[in-house]
Amino acid sequence: MSTESEPEETRPPRKAAFLLGTAVVFFALDLVTKVVALARLEGKEPVRALGGLVYLQIVRNPGAAFSIATGMTWVLALVAIGVVVAIIWILPKLRSGGWAIGLGLVLAGALGNLVDRFFRAPGPLRGHVVDFLSLFAPNGEAWPVFNVADSSIVVGGILIVVLSLLGHEYDGRRSKDKAQDTKEAASNE
C-alpha cells in the first residue's frame, strides 16, 4: 500500500488497472460480436442496417485492412505479438489516464485479431480474421470490412497520436517538462 511520503518511482502503476480493464472490456466485446456475427450471418447475403450506413456480413480476412499483406498472416501475428509486448513493457511506467485508455484499446484490438490468427482456419499463425462490419456499401466496396478489434486499434491509435501532439506523455509528464528535465541534467554536468 502506498503512502503520501512514498517516492513516485516506487508506487505501483496508477493506470495499469485502467488499461487492463479497458483491454478486457473491448477484447470481450470483440469476441462476443464475432461469435454472434458468425452464428447469424455466416453464408448469408449482407444485411443492410441503419439505412444503409452499415452492412453486416462475414468476411474472413487473411491480411490487414484494405487487403494489405494478404498471405502474410504470420507476419501480422508477429507484429501483434510485438505490440502486446511493447504495451506490457510500458505498463509499469504508465501514469496517464488518456494513454491508459488508448493503449488498452490497442491491446484489446491486437489480442482480438491475434486470437483469430492463432485459432481460426486455416491454422495457427495463418488464421483468417473474422470481419463483419462494412460502411456505406456491402462487400467492402466503399470501405474495408472490419470488426470491433480493428475499431479499437484505430480509435486507440488516434487517441495516442492526439495525446502525443498535445504534449502528453505516457508517464504523465508533458513534453515541455521532459525538455526542461533534459536541459537541467545537461547543465548539471
Results as ranks from 00 to 15, higher is better:
134 S>M: 00
147 N>D: 06
152 S>T: 04
150 D>H: 01
32 V>L: 15
97 G>C: 04
124 P>S: 12
87 I>V: 15
86 A>E: 03
34 K>A: 08
29 L>Y: 09
67 S>T: 10
183 K>F: 07
172 G>I: 10
71 G>Q: 04
6 E>D: 09
39 A>E: 08
186 A>S: 07
69 A>C: 12
171 D>N: 15
113 N>M: 02
19 L>E: 01
130 V>W: 13
61 N>Q: 06
79 V>R: 00
179 A>G: 01
10 T>R: 11
158 I>Y: 03
73 T>K: 01
4 E>M: 13
5 S>L: 09
25 V>C: 10
130 V>C: 08
6 E>P: 01
142 A>S: 01
72 M>N: 09
6 E>S: 13
62 P>G: 08
105 L>D: 06
143 W>Q: 05
171 D>W: 14
50 L>S: 10
67 S>K: 12
67 S>D: 12
10 T>Q: 13
24 V>E: 00
11 R>W: 13
130 V>K: 03
139 N>K: 06
26 F>M: 08
65 A>W: 13
8 E>K: 10
53 L>E: 09
182 T>I: 09
129 V>C: 06
77 A>P: 02
92 P>T: 05
102 G>C: 13
109 G>D: 00
104 G>L: 12
120 R>Q: 01
188 N>R: 03
184 E>A: 07
24 V>R: 00
164 S>F: 13
161 V>P: 03
131 D>W: 00
72 M>R: 09
81 I>N: 06
48 R>N: 13
141 E>G: 01
98 G>C: 07
8 E>A: 11
163 L>Q: 12
97 G>R: 09
184 E>D: 09
100 A>V: 12
20 L>V: 12
174 R>P: 10
106 V>W: 11
133 L>T: 07
151 S>Y: 05
141 E>T: 09
118 F>N: 14
39 A>W: 04
184 E>G: 08
107 L>T: 05
99 W>M: 13
117 R>Q: 05
178 K>M: 10
75 V>G: 00
106 V>S: 09
115 V>Q: 00
68 I>L: 13
117 R>M: 05
136 F>I: 01
58 I>M: 06
100 A>P: 14
154 V>M: 08
180 Q>L: 15
47 V>W: 07
90 I>N: 12
149 A>Q: 03
180 Q>K: 11
128 H>F: 14
18 F>Y: 11
98 G>R: 01
162 V>K: 04
130 V>N: 12
106 V>N: 07
120 R>F: 11
181 D>G: 04
23 A>C: 06
144 P>E: 00
122 P>V: 03
97 G>I: 00
11 R>I: 04
183 K>Q: 02
166 L>I: 06
88 I>R: 10
141 E>L: 01
55 Y>F: 15
178 K>I: 14
141 E>A: 03
92 P>H: 08
62 P>E: 06
181 D>A: 12
118 F>A: 13
146 F>I: 01
82 G>S: 09
128 H>Q: 10
88 I>V: 15
128 H>L: 07
185 A>T: 07
189 E>T: 11
73 T>G: 01
108 A>H: 10
139 N>E: 00
184 E>K: 00
187 S>L: 08
90 I>D: 08
81 I>P: 04
48 R>S: 15
10 T>S: 14
93 K>E: 04
149 A>P: 08
26 F>S: 08
159 L>G: 15
57 Q>N: 02
98 G>W: 11
142 A>M: 04
54 V>Q: 00
157 G>L: 02
123 G>A: 12
31 L>R: 15
75 V>S: 00
16 A>C: 07
109 G>N: 04
136 F>T: 00
104 G>Y: 12
